[in-house]
């Protein structure tokens, strides 16, 4: 494992911890899109089907369990916890996220590296992860006061994707036959979706102002 990959995984882990901190400690999910969180739960459930069949490393299994457990508990918190659900911006979080599922699934059926159940589900999870942030970005645009934790959460998610691209570049030059167009292109699309957010995040940081996205 190279440094970019490890840093990517750690920023991903940090993003989850920041979100759990906000939800569990402050008992608030204001500014957080349930739609995006549900998509992430589906992403991990369909990607980690191999968790009990293929052992890669203890690190790999543990991280998979963490991402599965955290994504489903976040969805549970926002839907079921009586205090947290009260802070949920339901009227603002209107992105029709179910409409992303079918196109991603059809694309996975058509474009994949191997036509097997596990492989198609894995590819589906890549396509879905690429667009899963969209409801969250739309919600951010509508939020007047983006709190620091929400801003940091989205920043860490974007950083994780950027670091994964550096990891792929590194692996491409250090490992023989390391060519994977499907995750690369969907990963690139996913990272580009954060470009706009990053711009305003750094602007607000530079000028020491509160983060606000233009509608």
């Amino acid at each position: 494992m190279n440094i970019f990959r490890l840093a990517g995984d750690m920023t991903h882990l940090a993003s989850v911890l920041v979100l759990l901190l906000k939800i569990h400690t402050i008992k608030s999910c204001a500014g957080i899109s349930l739609k995006t969180q549900e998509l992430f739960a589906i992403v991990f459930a369909s990607r980690y089907l191999d968790i009990f069949t293929d052992f890669i490393s203890l690190y790999n299994t543990l991280m998979k369990l963490i991402f599965l457990g955290s994504s489903f508990s976040i969805v549970w918190y926002i839907r079921r916890h009586k205090l947290v659900r009260r802070s949920y911006d339901k009227d603002q979080d209107t992105f029709r996220h179910y409409f992303l599922l079918l196109p991603c699934f059809i694309l996975a059926l058509l474009i994949n590296e191997k036509f097997t159940f596990k492989e198609v589900m894995w590819t589906f999870s890549l396509y879905l992860e690429a667009v899963a942030i969209l409801p969250q970005l739309v919600l951010l645009q509508r939020t007047k006061n983006i709190d620091n934790l929400t801003g940091q959460y989205v920043f860490l998610l974007g950083a994780y994707r950027g670091l994964y691209i550096l990891n792929w570049i590194y692996r491409y030059f250090t490992e023989p036959h390391y060519v994977h167009w499907i995750p690369w292109i969907s990963g690139l699309v996913q990272t580009l979706l954060y470009a706009d957010f990053f711009y305003y995040y750094f602007e607000s940081w530079k000028n020491n102002k509160k983060l606000q996205l233009p509608a």
Binding site: R5, D9, H12, D54, I56, S57, N60, E113, Y178, P183
Partner: peptide, 10 residues
């Protein structure tokens, strides 16, 4: 091996 090498990522 080539096909599976990406499955070590998360």
């Amino acid at each position: 091996v080539e096909q599976e090498s990406l499955k070590d990522e998360l």
